[in-house]
Nucleic acid binder design. Structure first.
Lengths: 175, 175
DNA sequence: CTAGATGCAAAAACTTTGCTCTCTG
DNA sequence: CAGAGAGCAAAGTTTTTGCATCTAG
């Protein structure tokens, strides 16, 4: 299929700086400092995990990744930090179903999501046609578009079978 | 734990609509029958509550409203029914954060939201062009569209300073 | 030095499930 | 009548909190 739409920027990790745990503050850490947040080691760690994530990690994911880098953080702190960052507008909370909240760094260019309702997998895509239509729709309502969010929920094409349905809990990992 | 009490959140008092006459099956009930679901009293009741809802009730809301009409239903049944209806495409699950899943009857057409970023006001709208495009986008990615969510953020007139201005209230509950 | 952070575990909040009894088709 | 559905409470998950103890600024 055409590549249009798919932006696989998966395991890219560290875009500009070497993962050297030195003093190169992650993008998110910078944002935190900008808003005057007290930067503790845990927050720096979590900020880094989020900056390097190319998917939509849920709290568990962030927690595990943080532990993998430096196990000096508790799940409660991850919850607290992630919530703080959301309030500060540094993170966006996304609910793709599956019962867990997922987070998306708000500094990433905007893209849309297609969620496979059976597996919970998330596909990111961008579409110029949609962008244009969004503009038109907003204008039609008398507004200037300044932001948008589009989420499509779909099911892999296949003969509609009464399959045992997908598990609600623990959906497949995002991507 | 037991004692779940009510954590009265922005109670959605939007249950105004021509009350369904005693025996006329609600729209959602009809949809259930159409899909060959076994119609029990509880399902009929839940279907009615959903048909009359003009907001996006969460399970608790549906449960309470159902009890108000006829207290012969358990929360477990509401969960099971709502999940069933979602699987049958009669309901759309909307996660607005806040930890609870909210439901939106798919029988009154998809509607989207345009949020005025300056006032926070939400305008609902529907658009066939978008519907069509969503279908196409999903198909293009190899999926059958089963649900969608579109939110546009716009500004009415004169642009305000590009600065965040004020972090308004908590992320959002819906209604 | 001190307001705010962290850890830990317990408490909440939210959903699902096992099992028995009921009721629809 | 058979098998799906309903009730209930217990179990499962995800998220929040109380409190004593640190620590960034």
């Amino acid at each position: 299929m055409t590549e249009r739409g798919f932006n696989h920027r998966m395991e890219s990790r560290t875009q500009a700086r070497p993962p050297t745990r030195g003093h190169s503050p992650s993008r998110i850490e910078e944002l935190c400092i900008e808003r005057g947040l007290k930067m503790t080691g845990q927050r720096r760690l979590i900020a880094r995990v989020l900056s390097e994530a190319e998917d939509h990690p849920d709290v568990e994911d962030v927690y595990r990744r943080a532990l993998a880098l430096d196990n000096k953080v508790s799940i409660a702190t991850v919850y607290r930090t992630v919530r703080l960052l959301e309030e500060k507008g540094i993170l966006e909370r996304r609910d793709f179903g599956g019962g867990r909240a997922r987070y998306d760094p708000a500094d990433r260019g905007h893209h849309h999501h297609l969620i496979d309702v059976d597996t919970g997998k998330v596909i990111e895509f961008a579409d110029p046609e949609f962008e244009a239509l969004a503009q038109i729709l907003a204008r039609r309502l008398g507004f200037t578009l300044v932001g948008q969010r589009l989420e499509l929920f779909g099911r892999r094409e296949e003969p509609v079978a009464p399959e045992p349905a997908a598990r609600r809990r623990k959906p497949g990992r995002d991507a």
